[in-house]
Amino acid sequence: MSMDKEAIQKLGRLSRIALGDQQAEQIADELSNILRWIAQLKEVDVEGVAPMTSVLEAHAHPRADIVNDGYAPKRVLANAPQEIRGYYIVPKVIEQDTT
């Protein structure tokens, strides 16, 4: 499996990391190497093997529905690069998209 510059740029878009052309080319080579190395996993017969999502043979212990946090906007905003009237501030967003 080898990767080209375009594929790297697409990954850069997905992961929101700006990449110069030259940089993308270099990373393409590095990642191609790593992918070739990783490809040895294809040798392993995983037929019928369950994927491991956690090493712990445990399950969730939900917490009680109690309000015991929040009400400390200063604590939350303490490290904000930009803040106005208690809001985080970002460059204006034109498109809208919530999920």
């Binding site: 992961s15 929101r16 990391i17 700006a18 939350v76 905003l77 303490a78 690069p81 970002v90 460059p91």
Partner: peptide
């Protein structure tokens, strides 16, 4: 957005993400 490094003078939210990271 909420803490840590932020690139100066971003032209858009997306530009801010891309360059900050």
């Amino acid at each position: 957005v909420r803490y840590g490094y932020r690139t100066p003078d971003a032209s858009s939210l997306d530009d801010m993400y891309m360059r900050t990271r």
